[in-house]
Amino acid sequence: MRSMQARLFVFRLVAISLVSMGFAQVSTAGMIGTRALIEHEARDGRVAKLESLLNRQDVARQLVAFGADVDVVKSRIRNMTDAELAELDGRIDAQIAGGDAVGIIGAVFLVLLILELVGVTDIFKKL
């Protein structure tokens, strides 16, 4: 009885995951689903937010102080996958929970966070 239940549970899990895979995108002969646009806009919003952070003088100055190139960091951000961008954005949000990011956590910390997540090692020119 127990193993029957366990099997049923596993079956349901597999069934649910199969179903959700199948519905990953509503597609009737090539129609591009609404989710594609939603994800596209989320990405654009995140990139714009990060770039506006990098455009701040205090942040840019800190990047230069670390020997990093602002343009390289920016192009890195534009080339990040959706998941990586979401993580970076989430990490910054978790630190600030609303309000002015740089004012609250400080330019140094913010820059370190960004450098860590865009992949520090080959961004640094001096180190």
């Binding site: 519905f23 509503v26 689903g33 609404t34 989710r35 939603i38």
Partner: peptide, 15 residues
């Protein structure tokens, strides 16, 4: 708006 759209999209995707 964003959350409402995402909820609708999920509703649609689940049939």
């Amino acid at each position: 708006d964003g959350r409402y759209f995402a909820s609708l999209s999920a509703l649609e995707e689940t049939g």
